[in-house]
Amino acid sequence: MSTSQLEKFQDEVEIPEGVTITQKKHMLTFVGPLGKTHQSFRKIPVNLEITDSKVLLTTIDQRKKDYAILHAARSLIRNICEGLITGYTIKMKVVFAHFPITVKVEGKDVIIENFQGERAPRKTVIVGNTKVIPKGEDVILTGEVWTDITQTAANIELKTKVKNKDHRVFLDGIYAFEKKKGIDK
């Protein structure tokens, strides 16, 4: 392969000011103004090397699949760095027609009560360091790690999925309606 072809199997991520990254084998630890988090790269076949202000990524092999994995790892690091500086917010709307749905947070669980008149509450887990704040008809999810926030939102949405009924008629549930950078209160 020529050197120009080999260069596309290498990439680098600029570390923003205020964020420090340390490496211990396959584990990267990120520390920023909004907090501290870590990400394991054990199952991601990419070589990582941290210099003073950059993270150098190189693939293990030179296949098309490795090129895609390289860019997935790059965006993962970039999103964590960006989240530690600005944070992320997802707003969800509680929608119901007849039975009023109540959302509560207890520890690391989100409890959804009275969904379609059910007596037993539905529970789902909060992923990572995500903060869930129920405010009337809205549920606000905030945090530093985008993958944790979106997974928590997906868990809540899936727990309120209507089964064995026409989803065009039975619109009850909790749905995400706004995703943005920055932390809302």
Rank of each mutant, 00 (worst) to 15 (best):
I140P: 03
E144N: 13
P134H: 03
T147A: 10
V169L: 11
A153P: 04
Q116S: 11
Q116N: 12
I140R: 03
A120K: 14
H167Y: 09
G87C: 13
A120W: 14
Y88G: 02
F96V: 02
V169S: 10
T124R: 06
K93I: 14
D148H: 07
T102C: 10
T147L: 09
T152P: 02
R168S: 12
V145L: 02
E157P: 04
D109W: 10
A176W: 05
K161T: 14
L141F: 06
I112F: 03
K163S: 09
V95M: 06
I101R: 06
D148T: 01
T150E: 04
D148R: 00
F115E: 00
V162I: 15
A154Q: 11
R168F: 14
F115I: 04
N164E: 13
W146I: 11
E118F: 07
F96H: 10
V132R: 01
I101A: 06
T102E: 07
D148L: 02
I133R: 08
G107Y: 03
L141C: 07
D109T: 15
T89N: 06
I149C: 04
E144W: 07
T142M: 02
T142R: 06
V127D: 07
D148M: 01
T102K: 12
D138F: 12
T150R: 03
P100E: 05
A120T: 15
I112P: 01
E144Y: 09
N164R: 14
K123Q: 08
G117S: 05
K108F: 10
D166W: 05
E106S: 10
P121C: 05
F96A: 07
T89D: 02
